[in-house]
Design a binder for these strands. Structure first.
Lengths: 157, 157
DNA sequence: TGCTAAACTGACGTTTACGTAAGGAATAGT
DNA sequence: ACTATTCCTTACGTAAACGTCAGTTTAGCA
């Protein structure tokens, strides 16, 4: 199972070693069922087009995407529907990157990059908002801890 | 908001105006059903002892507790079971506070205060851990944003 | 005391996010 | 070509966290 990167003619990141669902599940800490489910509800593109009944195959990029999904889900506690909203962003990214590489039109490139930035900014806003809320909570807890500590000091003299 | 340790019999805070479930639900942004459910699974004490069939009644402190539950649930994305673990802490606090006010034994007081601090520290650890994870995520997103921005700069110039 | 709004207790329904089992193909190794 | 995995689809099952009746009962008030 050597993951030898063949020195292909293209320095293309998409020289994707192709994996099957079981491997992807392990790499992402999920299960095949979960991955199929995510595809079912439109969170995953279903990989490349695939004739019904044939095995799904995934790229390392897909693995990253799934990892990101799990991470955002866990950290932000979003529902998968909210996530697919937010990741309409990421969903577009694969396509955007491909098109970005394949176009020479600077205007088009600019447009694509701006989209990308917008998506990232969305995520950033969410994450920062959450951090802010948690920081407020932390401050309150700290204060309470300090109060208790103070009383302990007064007691213990 | 937090009914802090007030050793003295202050008139207002201990004058626990008693509310019924509907009012509490509105104040906490929940529903009566939710409150009953929380009681059902042991997250809420069920208020004071109550003869079956009679109306539940709540104190402002109960309102605070429910608010805290909702907040922790939303911010940390914990299950109610995990919450009741964590809030075994808070659950104890009411009793602890009462006993704290009613005892004169400094040793006992110290013990109670230490318990309180332990509970708060538990919550703090959780919150801080979550903040750390989110901060890592924020850093990664920022970096990505910067990369895109850089490319935009190279293009636009 | 009588009335009405709000609460009470079951008990079944619902959504989300998968788990699990069944029966049949596809793919890799020999 | 044969075989053992791994995967496929379909479909029903499940746990958590409530929502939603339905049929009573309680509590505040006129």
């Amino acid at each position: 199972m050597t993951a030898t990167f063949e020195p292909g003619p293209l320095p293309d990141e998409s020289a994707a070693r192709t994996m099957r669902i079981g491997e992807v599940a392990e790499l992402t800490g999920t299960t095949p069922r979960t991955i199929r489910y995510y595809e079912e509800i439109g969170l995953l593109s279903g990989g490349t087009e695939r004739e019904l009944g044939k095995h799904r195959c995934y790229s390392p990029g897909d693995v990253d995407r799934i990892k990101e999904i799990v991470r955002l889900k866990d950290l932000l506690g979003l529902s998968l529907e909210q996530l697919s909203q937010l990741l309409e962003a990421e969903t577009a990214r694969a396509g955007i990157r491909r098109e970005y590489r394949e176009t020479d039109d600077p205007d088009r490139q600019r447009t694509l990059l701006n989209q990308s930035r917008g998506h990232i900014d969305n995520q950033l806003a969410l994450v920062r908002g959450r951090i802010a809320e948690l920081s407020r909570l932390e401050a309150e807890l700290s204060e309470r801890a300090a109060l208790v500590q103070e009383k302990l000091g007064a007691l213990g003299e």
